[in-house]
Each structure stands twice: as C-alpha cells, then as structure tokens.
Amino acid sequence: MVDPRGLRFAATITAVVLSVALVTGNPWVLLAQLVVFAVGAVGGVRRAPYALVFRRLIRPRLGPPATTEDPAPPRFAQAVGAVFAAVGVVGFLTGLDVLGYVATAFAFAAAFLNAAFEFCLGCHLYLFIRTTTARGARA
C-alpha cells in the first residue's frame, strides 16, 4: 500500500517537469521524465525517484496517512505516462514537434489533474479496464 500524499507530491513534480518540457520543447527534459515514469512503471511507485524524495524528506515531517492506496493503479498510470513521454520524445527528436507538444500536453494534463484535484486519470483508466475485463470474463 502507498501513501496517497506521496502520489500527489510526485504528480506535482511531474507537472512542473512536464510544463518545463512544454515551454522549452526540450526533448532531454522530457526524456528525464520518461525515465522517472519507467522506473515507477517497472520498479513500482515506491521505487520511483519522486517517491524516494517524498519518503526521505517529506513524510517524516508528516503524521501517518489517514488512508493508503493500492499501488497497482498508480503503477499503471506511470506506464501510461511513459508511453506519452516516449511519443513526445520521439516527436521532438524527429522534428515532428507537433507530436512532441501534443503528447507532452496530454501527459501534463493528467499530472496536473492528479496534483491539483487528486484525480488520477491513469488510475481511473486502470480501474475501468479491470472492471470491463472482469465483466467480459463473466459473460
């Protein structure tokens, strides 16, 4: 189980990094965020760099979380973010800047929704897929 405050912290940092990538069109900034997404998707959200910062520097100053969350939906969200970041990096590096900006903007929008409103778009997509595939298996 994971602390939802850490997930929101990570989404805030992610939104800042993605906004820098959007403003500058810098593929290397986006590539760095892609690596962060990939670590979270492959290694789990507890091992993601922003989660480590939260756990070591911020969480000790806070009380225990009121609730915890299943790490599977945020891990899926990290994978979705990695896909969008990868498409953005490819777009920027191949001269298809529109593709780079659009993919980065989608990733930014999802991170911003999580950071500002605690609405994890990738998590909801994960739950939707799980629900629809579970229903399909029963039919």
Rank of each mutant, 00 (worst) to 15 (best):
A77P: 07
A110C: 15
G81F: 04
V53S: 08
A82F: 01
V98M: 06
T94S: 15
F84K: 03
A15G: 13
L7D: 06
Y126F: 14
T67L: 11
V98Q: 00
R55Q: 15
F92M: 13
A103G: 10
F112W: 14
L22D: 01
A116I: 00
P27R: 06
A38P: 02
T67I: 13
V36W: 01
L62R: 06
T94N: 14
T24Q: 02
V16E: 08
G136S: 04
F76C: 10
G88P: 05
G88A: 03
R47M: 13
T131Y: 11
V42H: 00
A111H: 08
G100V: 13
G43N: 05
L22N: 00
G43W: 04
A134E: 12
L127G: 02
S19K: 03
A86R: 07
F54K: 03
V16H: 12
R46C: 02
R59Q: 10
L62S: 01
G44M: 10
R55Y: 09
I58V: 15
A109T: 14
Y126Q: 04
T104V: 14
V87I: 13
V17Y: 08
T68D: 09
F106W: 10
A115W: 09
N26Y: 13
N26P: 12
F84N: 05
R8Y: 01
G43T: 04
V45K: 04
A66Q: 09
T133Y: 12
L113W: 11
G91T: 10
M1G: 08
A79P: 07
V89E: 05
V16R: 10
G63A: 00
T68S: 14
P27I: 00
T12F: 15
A21W: 07
G81C: 08
E118A: 15
V2W: 01
R130W: 11
D70G: 09
V39Y: 13
I129Y: 15
G6C: 06
A107L: 11
V98W: 06
L30M: 00
L125G: 03
F37N: 06
L31D: 03
L99N: 11
V45A: 05
V83F: 05
T12R: 15
L93K: 01
A103I: 09
G136Q: 03
P71E: 11
C120E: 01
G43K: 10
R56S: 14
I129C: 10
A134F: 01
L7A: 00
P4Y: 05
T24L: 06
T131D: 14
L96T: 13
Y101P: 04
L57A: 14
V42W: 07
G88D: 00
V16T: 14
R55I: 06
T133H: 11
R5I: 01
T12Q: 15
A41L: 07
R8L: 00
V23H: 09
P73R: 02
A137H: 00
Y50V: 05
A86H: 02
G136L: 06
P73Q: 04
L7W: 02
A15I: 09
T24M: 03
A82S: 08
R75E: 10
R8I: 01
R75P: 03
L99Y: 07
R46F: 01
L127Q: 12
G6F: 03
A86K: 05
A110K: 09
